[in-house]
Computed example of a mutant assay.
Amino acid sequence: MTLDPHVPHEALLLEDVRVTFGHVTALDGLSLTAASGAITAVLGPNGAGKTTMMRCCTSLVSPDSGHISVLGQAPGSPEAVAATGLMPQSAGAWSGIRAGELLHYMAGLHANPIDPDLLIDALAITPFARTTYRRLSGGQQQAVNLAAALVGRPRLVFLDEPTSGMDPHARHHTWDIVEHMRHDGVSVVLTTHNMDEAQQLADHVWIVDRGRVATHGTVPELTAESSLEDVFLTHTSDRAAGRN
């Protein structure tokens, strides 16, 4: 395979990123990478800094120091914004709009969107497309959040707890969608508390704790002698550190 010289080998690069909120240190010298065209999982307990990391990468939070490269560009640059998608844990600002209307609106924000009706069908949103976002179940909201993240045809997509609240059928269907994204060359960075999800999907796993990397590797490397959950428990704290 010939590599496109215009596509960086690393879809995402963080070097010594530090973020503080008052007296709380959210990221404490976090350094990690995500390969282009791969699924990268970032695991960690509540408060480890996972969501803050994603917010930095999508320019929702400005780090105090360190360097971040998103598809070879600075976070928040027009090039990075146009080429990335974000699936948040929650999207309360959308509460009053119907699911289908929301996705058609989001499609209109992009130059070359995926037909939102195709996403509505692919993600099984049709039965609740006319329901307002606030009246959807947690799993249904997650399906809409995922569709909104994908509608702009991103080259890099951030998925924050993508299957939280989903039943097993919906979860496995979402896994299929994520694997199809990788097949299409989309780079995926996801956070999850589901060890099975990380083991099923990830090409590379980073385990973070207290705002920095505790260990990382491929799933076979990390699980050569114990389960992924055991590795997680060994390398992370069981105390909530107050970081998101």
Rank of each mutant, 00 (worst) to 15 (best):
F128N: 09
T236P: 01
A93W: 13
A149H: 02
E221F: 04
A148V: 13
A143P: 01
A26D: 01
L136I: 06
A11P: 02
A241W: 14
F128Y: 14
Q141D: 05
L27V: 07
A149F: 00
P63M: 09
A93P: 05
G29C: 03
S77Y: 05
E197A: 03
I97V: 15
G242V: 12
G152W: 06
E179N: 14
S65P: 05
L123M: 04
A107E: 13
L32D: 01
G185A: 07
A124Q: 15
V42Y: 02
T223Q: 01
L102H: 00
A35M: 15
T51E: 04
L118P: 08
A147P: 00
P168R: 05
T40P: 01
P8R: 04
D167I: 13
F21E: 14
S237F: 12
H216F: 05
T33C: 05
S90M: 10
N244C: 09
V186M: 01
D115L: 04
H23V: 14
I120N: 02
A111T: 15
H104V: 00
L136C: 06
D196H: 15
A143Q: 02
H104G: 03
T2F: 14
R239A: 12
R243C: 13
K50S: 02
P116G: 01
A11F: 03
A107H: 11
R135F: 12
S137D: 08
A129D: 08
T215Y: 00
D16G: 07
P88T: 00
P113N: 04
T25C: 11
V19D: 00
T218L: 02
P162V: 04
S95Q: 15
T192R: 00
R55K: 13
P116D: 05
F158H: 03
L32S: 03
R153G: 06
D115I: 05
S187K: 01
H169F: 11
R212D: 07
T131E: 15
A11H: 00
P5V: 09
F158T: 03
G138S: 07
G242M: 14
D117P: 05
R171H: 09
A202F: 07
G22C: 09
W94Q: 10
V81M: 14
E221P: 06
D203H: 13
W94P: 04
I39C: 11
F21D: 10
G152T: 03
A91S: 08
Y105E: 12
F158C: 05
E179M: 15
